[in-house]
Simulated assay, not measured.
Amino acid sequence: MINIGEFARLGGVSTRRLRHYDAIGLLSPAHVDPHTGRRSYDVAQLPVLNRLVALKGLGFSLEEVGVLLIEGVDSAQMQGMLRLRRAELERQVRHDLHVLDRVTARLRLIEQENHVNAQITTKQSDAFTIAGLTATAPDASRQSTGAVVQSLFGQVIDHMDAAGADRTTPIAHYVPDPDTPEVHITAGYTVPNGSVPGLEPHTLPSTQVASTVHQGPMATISTAYQALAD
C-alpha cells in the first residue's frame, strides 16, 4: 500500500484528480483509514489509472471511460487506440506547422510593409528560348503555384539530364488566365543552341522588365514580389 501522494506521483496525475475519480466511482482507493480518512492505493491499481488517463486523452467522456473500464480494455486494444490517436495528433501537428509557416510569412510581409529595401531595376531583356513544360495551377497562391513549379522542374530536369543539356539558367514563367483564377506556368531552362527531346520550346520576346534579386528562402520570396508590385 502507498499513500495518495505517492500513487499520484507514480501515475502522473494530481491528488485532486485522484479524489475526483474516487468521488465519481471511477477509481477508489484500496483502503481508507476510518479514523483519519487517509487514502491508500495498491500498486496493482496503476494499470487501471493508466487506462483511465489514456481513455480520457482519447476523447472519451468520464462516463464512457467508466463503461469501458467495467467491460475491460486489454493492452492490445489500448495500444491500438493510442496508436491511432498518436497518428491523428501527428497529422494535426503537421497541419498546424503548415498554418504557422503561412502566418509567419504573412506577418513578415506586414512587418516589412514600411521597410522595403529591395533594389528594383528596369532593363531591356533580350528574347530567349527555354526548353520546358507547361501546366496549370488552380490559383495564384504560393501553395498552388509552388507545387506545380516543383513538379514541372522535376520532370524537366530528368529530360535535361538525359540529353546532357546545360541547366545553368532555370526559368519559371507565369501567365494568369484572364477569365479564371488559374495560372498557366511554364518551367524550364534556357537553350541557346538546339532543342531538348521531350521538352517544348517556348520563346519569350524581348521586352522591358522590372527586376530584383531575392536572397533567402522561398518562404520569404513574397516580399520580393510585393516590392516589384509597388
Results as ranks from 00 to 15, higher is better:
1 M>I: 09
1 M>F: 11
3 N>T: 02
4 I>W: 09
4 I>E: 14
6 E>H: 04
10 L>T: 00
10 L>Y: 00
10 L>G: 00
14 S>K: 00
15 T>R: 02
20 H>E: 07
20 H>P: 08
21 Y>M: 01
21 Y>D: 01
25 G>S: 01
26 L>P: 11
30 A>N: 14
31 H>A: 10
31 H>W: 12
32 V>T: 13
32 V>S: 04
32 V>W: 01
34 P>L: 08
36 T>H: 10
36 T>F: 04
38 R>D: 11
39 R>T: 12
42 D>T: 09
43 V>Y: 03
44 A>W: 03
51 R>Q: 14
52 L>N: 06
54 A>T: 12
57 G>V: 02
57 G>H: 08
62 L>F: 13
64 E>R: 07
68 L>I: 01
68 L>H: 04
69 L>H: 07
69 L>T: 05
73 V>L: 02
74 D>T: 14
74 D>E: 15
75 S>N: 13
76 A>S: 10
78 M>K: 09
83 R>A: 15
85 R>K: 13
86 R>D: 10
87 A>H: 15
88 E>T: 09
89 L>P: 03
91 R>K: 08
93 V>E: 15
97 L>K: 07
100 L>S: 12
101 D>H: 15
101 D>K: 15
102 R>N: 11
103 V>Y: 05
104 T>G: 05
105 A>Q: 04
109 L>K: 05
110 I>W: 15
112 Q>C: 01
113 E>G: 10
113 E>H: 14
114 N>V: 08
118 A>G: 09
120 I>G: 15
120 I>T: 15
121 T>H: 01
122 T>H: 07
123 K>H: 05
125 S>N: 14
125 S>K: 13
126 D>V: 15
126 D>C: 13
127 A>W: 04
128 F>E: 04
133 L>I: 10
135 A>Q: 13
137 A>R: 02
138 P>Q: 01
139 D>G: 01
142 R>E: 11
145 T>N: 07
145 T>E: 12
145 T>K: 02
146 G>N: 12
148 V>M: 01
150 Q>S: 12
151 S>D: 06
151 S>G: 14
152 L>I: 01
152 L>W: 02
152 L>Q: 02
154 G>V: 04
156 V>A: 04
158 D>E: 07
160 M>I: 10
161 D>M: 14
161 D>C: 10
164 G>V: 12
166 D>R: 13
168 T>H: 09
170 P>V: 12
172 A>Y: 03
172 A>T: 06
172 A>M: 02
174 Y>M: 15
174 Y>P: 14
175 V>G: 06
176 P>Q: 06
177 D>I: 04
179 D>C: 02
181 P>R: 03
183 V>F: 06
183 V>L: 05
183 V>P: 03
185 I>C: 04
188 G>F: 02
189 Y>R: 11
190 T>Q: 12
190 T>N: 09
194 G>D: 00
194 G>T: 00
195 S>H: 12
195 S>R: 14
195 S>P: 03
198 G>Q: 06
199 L>C: 03
200 E>P: 00
200 E>D: 11
204 L>V: 02
204 L>F: 04
207 T>G: 06
207 T>R: 15
213 V>H: 06
214 H>S: 03
215 Q>M: 13
217 P>Q: 10
217 P>A: 14
219 A>C: 09
223 T>S: 09
224 A>Q: 03
225 Y>K: 02
227 A>H: 06
227 A>Q: 05
229 A>D: 12
229 A>P: 07
230 D>E: 13
230 D>M: 07
230 D>N: 08
